[in-house]
């Protein structure tokens, strides 16, 4: 493929450097007692995870999903719903089988990923019948549909969202301590990055990228793009759903805003700001986004205008994103 061994090694190095920087920030913050910095770093890790999910579909599969907030929100709501039932000691449902609430992260994560994956399967199966600009708008519209459902379904708070006051638990850790919760999120992010790197280099990943680059040629060698893309879309949705679950626990609160199209746009921004199809792209993108939000947000209320200009500059003049700028190499197309 376009990148040489040297380029690959440099990108891996850069990925490690970015992750170390995030980790280093937290260590310094822990020593100095800046609890809020740790919360911000946790947010970076979670948003990056959501971006890693999207990057799989968008960067490697070429599927411009403008509706990933749906999976983020579903992950969040599964977490909120299970936690609130566990708090009240009631069953979520008794049909077709009894499902009790839970406040164990290890039990919640698979459920969140399963639900997000199921939604991705349905949405993907329909949306992948279209392509190009239709795909963008259809994924957007499906996410909006779930958004409005969340707003108008009163059982779990509707418009108001759902609070669950106490963070879910993880064996051996006190998740309410910021640095311990950060460790959980960071570990999951690293796992997802490793999985994503392995997936991209696997036969599946190579076929997926081949289908993105030239559909006809891929079809000629026996690759069926629809099935490939659907699988990629589902895995992508599951990872973003896991991020949603973590985000719900970070805030101990979920609301329809997690599914809004702004969220979809922001997840996309993490990926593109960092660099589409770059392993560490979402991490760099999320870090810069949160940094800008926090630094500029304090200086002026109008920081989003500056973010907009930065984004414009990236799209127009540096399509490889920040990682591309550092590595001085455009995304191989």
């Amino acid at each position: 493929m376009g990148k040489g061994v040297k380029g690959m090694a440099r990108e891996t190095l850069l990925t490690l450097a970015i992750l170390s920087a995030l980790l280093g920030t937290v260590i310094v913050a822990q020593i100095t007692g800046e609890g809020f910095v740790i919360t911000l770093a946790t947010k970076v890790a979670i948003f990056a995870l959501a971006g890693v999910g999207l990057n799989l579909a968008l960067g490697y599969g070429g599927l411009v999903s403008f509706g990933h907030a749906a999976f983020f929100g579903i992950g969040g709501y599964v977490t909120g719903i299970l936690a609130s039932h566990a708090g009240a000691g009631t069953a979520v449902t008794t049909l077709p089988f009894a499902l009790m609430g839970s406040n164990e992260m290890l039990g919640i994560w698979p459920m969140a990923m399963l639900a997000a994956g199921a939604a991705a399967l349905l949405i993907g199966a329909l949306s992948l019948r279209t392509s190009g600009v239709y795909f963008i708008m259809v994924t957007l519209a499906f996410a909006q549909m779930l958004f409005y459902f969340a707003i108008s379904w009163p059982r779990y708070g509707g418009e108001d969202g759902l609070s669950f006051y106490v963070r879910n638990s993880f064996p051996g850790l006190n998740t309410l301590v910021p640095v311990q919760y950060f460790a959980i999120c960071m570990a999951l992010l690293v796992l997802a990055l490793i999985l994503s790197a392995a997936l991209v280099r696997s036969r599946f990943g190579l076929a997926l990228q081949a289908a993105r680059q030239n559909e006809q040629r891929a079809a000629a060698v026996g690759i069926r793009p629809y099935a490939l893309r659907l699988v990629a879309f589902v895995i992508s949705g599951m990872i973003t759903g896991l991020a949603g679950s973590l985000y719900a626990d970070l805030n101990r609160f979920v609301s329809p805003a997690m599914m809004s199209w702004h969220m979809s746009g922001e997840i996309m921004v993490f990926v593109i700001l960092g660099g589409v199809g770059r392993l560490a792209g979402p991490v760099a993108g999320a870090a810069v986004f949160i940094l800008l939000e926090h630094l500029l947000g304090g200086v002026s209320e109008y920081w989003k205008a500056l973010l907009g200009l930065l984004l414009l500059a990236i799209v127009l003049f540096a399509p490889g994103g920040l990682i591309g700028l550092v590595l001085r190499r455009d995304r191989h197309v």
């Binding site: 963008i136 921004v269 209320e301 989003k304 205008a305 973010l307 907009g308 984004l311 399509p319």
Partner: peptide, 23 residues
């Protein structure tokens, strides 16, 4: 450009327009 760039650039324009109007 591809649709991804268009989506992103026009999303950026929304941010600029909204905050500009707020200003």
């Amino acid at each position: 450009r591809d649709h991804l760039d268009q989506v992103l650039a026009t999303f950026a324009l929304i941010l600029v327009f909204s905050e500009g109007t707020r200003w």
